[in-house]
């Protein structure tokens, strides 16, 4: 079949291109410009070459924040993806229960990040918070302000509470798109519940799962507001993720050069990991 190529169609992309240029490319260019210079204020800049990049790449502070960030993303993906799939399988397919479930699931997604942080900050407090007080009453030594493990558990639980619904809703959309004929054929073949999940539901959910994994990975790798509100990066530096460290450096210390170099490295890591995720998942989908 001969396709007609009409390159004038590229003009349709122009509005998006302009929008992205203003919102992303120009700020990114400025960051690149800052990353090779030093400033002492007054909008005066001095050439510094690649020193900030060398400093960042060899800094233990950066390595530690990167490891914390990767660990956080892996932990929340390992919890939210299976949990989201599990929840989506239990949502009813028809009847009044559908709307109730969907509204309840969507509620955490509607709450702004800083409010989620504030809710969990109060919720986890040992003196007045329901969670902290209950755990203390049960005899557990829980204090997210002083104990790094408790701080991590709180931040992870908060993220799971906030975002598992997104995974569940995406999976539910994938499940709803499966025609009844597939289930009828499985029934005729006498397929088990596990076989239906493994060979019908899971493959059909792959596309939405790709989106869910990508969204959750990128979002968790860029997490800032919630841990900043709950733990402020502490105790010590135990929950200081890359973004928190970056803001401390750029706004707190006003070290624009090192912060810009760190932003670029951070951006490249996100770009690489997202590309790998996207390529692996779309190609395994094609192979199926």
């Amino acid at each position: 079949m001969n396709k007609t190529w009409n390159n004038k169609a590229w003009f349709m992309v122009l509005p998006v291109f302009l929008l992205v240029a203003i919102s992303a490319i120009i700020p990114l260019m400025t960051v690149v410009n800052y990353s090779v210079q030093d400033t002492f204020g007054n909008n005066e800049f001095f050439w510094n070459g690649t020193d900030w990049f060398v400093d960042t790449l060899t800094s233990e502070r950066f390595h530690a924040a990167l490891v914390r960030n990767l660990s956080f993303s892996l932990i929340i993906l390992a919890i939210e993806i299976p949990l989201g799939i599990g929840i989506s399988l239990t949502i009813p397919k028809k009847g009044w229960g559908v709307s109730v479930c969907l509204v309840l699931m969507a509620l955490p997604l509607l709450i702004p990040w800083n409010v989620v942080g504030t809710i969990w900050q109060v919720f986890g407090r040992v003196d007045i918070g329901l969670l902290g007080h209950t755990l203390a009453a049960l005899g557990l030594d829980y204090n997210y302000v002083q104990d790094p493990i408790d701080a991590w558990a709180t931040v992870v639980a908060m993220d799971v509470w906030h975002w598992t619904s997104l995974v569940a809703l995406l999976c539910y959309a994938g499940l709803s798109a499966i025609p009844d004929a597939y289930y009828q054929a499985a029934k005729i073949d006498g397929a088990s519940r596990w076989a239906v999940f493994r060979y019908i539901q899971l493959p059909k959910m792959k596309r939405v799962l790709t989106i869910a994994v990508l969204l959750r990975f990128m979002d968790s790798f860029m997490i800032y507001t919630e841990p900043f509100v709950v733990t402020g990066g502490g105790p010590g530096n135990s929950t200081t993720f890359l973004s928190i460290d970056l803001v401390k450096m750029a706004i707190g210390q006003f070290d624009l050069g090192p912060a810009a170099a760190m932003s670029i490295i951070y951006f490249l890591i996100i770009l690489l990991l997202s590309w790998i995720f996207y390529t692996v998942m779309t190609n395994s989908e094609g192979a199926n």
Partner: peptide
């Protein structure tokens, strides 16, 4: 373009 703190090496990079 001083508000974007341009330098020749970064300009050449983007060009």
């Amino acid at each position: 373009l001083s508000w974007m703190a341009w330098t020749w090496p970064t300009a050449i990079f983007f060009l």
